[in-house]
Design a protein around this nucleic acid. Structure first.
Length: 104
DNA sequence: GCAATGACTGGTA
DNA sequence: TTACCAGCCATTG
């Protein structure tokens, strides 16, 4: 088992803070934390992402992080009321900056 | 130290 | 939409 770094805990914490109906991109999380980069966030998610709502973390273009579980992502998104555009998330509406939880 | 790799991003075609 | 490229940062051999 890989050792959990403080950076990983921050990433997981932010992911758990993402409100239903909202999503964040890898680059957004890295920028929000002010350290690392999208690749590092992706590595954290691939290693310890199993314990957090990883489906709320998507690519900058709104595509699902795990195409293997795309069906599962769509199911969660639709259940949480995430604005969708076909098989992708509508980032212009679903993008969460980490500041407002229920502020449309 | 260098090259390859990865749940990335943005731009261009 | 998909494909390719350059940039990006940490891990691994």
């Amino acid at each position: 088992m890989e050792p959990v770094n403080p950076f990983a805990e921050r990433v997981l914490d932010v992911v758990e803070r993402i409100p239903p109906g909202k999503v964040m991109a890898y680059g957004d999380i890295a920028e929000y934390l002010g350290e690392g980069g999208p690749r590092q966030v992706g590595k954290v998610m691939s290693t310890w992402g199993g314990g957090v709502p990883w489906w709320r973390v998507v690519h900058a273009d709104g595509t699902a992080a795990a195409p293997d579980h795309l069906r599962r992502c769509l199911d969660h998104w639709r259940d949480e009321g995430t604005p969708l555009r076909g098989e992708r998330v509508d980032m212009r509406l679903a993008r969460w900056d980490g500041r407002s939880a229920d502020f449309q």
